[in-house]
Amino acid sequence: MPDHTTAPLRYTAFSADPAGGNPAGVVLDATRLTDSDMLALAKDLGHSETAFLTAPPEGLGEAGRAYTVRYFSPRAEVPFCGHATIATAVALADRVGPGDLVFATRAGTVPVTVARTPDGTLRATLTSVEPYVTDVADADVTEALAALDWPAADLDPALPPRIAFAGARHLVLAAATRARLANLAYDFDRLEAFMRRLDLTTVQLVWRESADVFHVRDPFPVGGVVEDPATGAAAAAFGAYARELGLVPDAATLTLHQGADMGRPGVLTVELRAGDARVRVGGTGARIPDETGADDGNGGGGGDAR
């Protein structure tokens, strides 16, 4: 099992406040850890994901700024995790300075840039793998709504259900009102079974406040977590969804608010560039001081980890 050289750091992503955003574990040297070790450590931390770094594939990038990264939830390995990527990038920038990084993930190669803002806060921006958006069967939407206990009439017809991918698959469902989004009490086991059948990482629940401002929530039962406080992979997928459906121009910057309903507010910036299918997701990050303890009041920061 891990010793002091592989002990995880804890960083939050998409907030400069350690009490906001989405906490992640970060193990900067996982060379000696087995898969079982990584899963056990992620389960012990209880965050929605923990990132584990090892040496990069040959030729990926310069030493100290390129890594292989694997992500584990408390229940299983996941192909990509946006918030743990942001947290990892900020953790590395604390040690080697801001600049460009590159991560080899199971989903593909993910470049990340870290910059220091005028107030001294570190801000990281990841570039997703190539995204896609697909239709979802009416029967599957019906089952998802039944698991969520959401009437179909509570959906926003201007934002139709789709499955979106930018490193992991997410079902996008849009609420017609902020009140509908705020009221989330779902059947954990039923939604988990549904998501496993469709190979979904989260369900991206969305309410549109304005042309470029959205509020989102992400149930994550397949990771053993009721809700993810800030979800970078889903934000990237949603950017692809918004562009695919013509909700925003080809070049646009979207602001996603997440975590307020859990008491961990965070802000995710989604950037779309004309002529580039990839999606950029950025946000601030911060070290979580050790004295806060392992429990952040939400099952380790992931919303009732099971």
Rank of each mutant, 00 (worst) to 15 (best):
T142K: 10
P161S: 02
T125F: 00
E209K: 14
H170E: 11
D199Q: 12
T127W: 04
E143F: 04
A124E: 11
P151I: 02
A185Y: 15
A175I: 08
V226Y: 06
L145V: 01
D212K: 02
R169E: 04
D199K: 05
L171Q: 04
D138A: 12
G120H: 13
R217A: 12
P229A: 07
A179R: 12
A153E: 15
M195A: 03
V129F: 13
V203W: 00
L205K: 05
V225M: 03
F165C: 01
A158Y: 04
L148M: 00
V203D: 01
F188H: 11
D119E: 15
F220R: 09
A115F: 02
A144W: 08
A139I: 05
F220L: 14
R162K: 13
P161L: 06
L155D: 04
T142L: 04
A152W: 05
L181K: 11
R208P: 03
A185I: 11
W150F: 14
R169Q: 04
D149T: 03
T177G: 02
R217V: 02
V114H: 06
V213H: 09
H170I: 00
E130G: 00
L173F: 13
D189E: 14
D138T: 01
V114L: 10
D228Q: 02
T177Y: 06
P221K: 09
E192F: 06
T231E: 09
I163P: 00
G223A: 13
H215D: 01
F188N: 09
L205S: 08
H170Q: 15
A139Y: 03
V206S: 11
R123I: 13
I163L: 11
A153I: 00
E130W: 10
L148A: 09
A182S: 15
H215Y: 15
W207E: 00
R178G: 13
R197G: 09
T202W: 04
R123S: 15
L122Y: 13
A158S: 13
L205D: 12
A137K: 09
P157R: 03
D189T: 13
Y132A: 05
A146Y: 10
L198Q: 07
A146R: 14
L159A: 08
T142Y: 01
D187Y: 07
A193M: 02
E130D: 14
W207L: 06
T127S: 15
A175L: 06
T117V: 01
A152N: 05
F220N: 11
P219K: 09
D135T: 06
R169C: 00
V226S: 05
D154C: 10
D199N: 13
R190D: 04
G224R: 00
V129S: 08
A164D: 10
F220V: 03
Y132T: 14
T121W: 00
V136K: 00
L181R: 03
R197M: 04
L191C: 07
S210H: 10
F165G: 12
P160G: 07
A158V: 11
I163F: 04
G223I: 05
T142R: 12
D140H: 14
A185K: 07
A115M: 10
A147L: 07
D187F: 01
L126T: 08
A179E: 15
R162W: 06
P131A: 05
L126F: 14
D187A: 01
L200F: 12
V114Q: 10
E209Y: 05
R196N: 07
T202C: 06
V141W: 08
R116W: 12
A146D: 10
A147G: 03
Y132N: 12
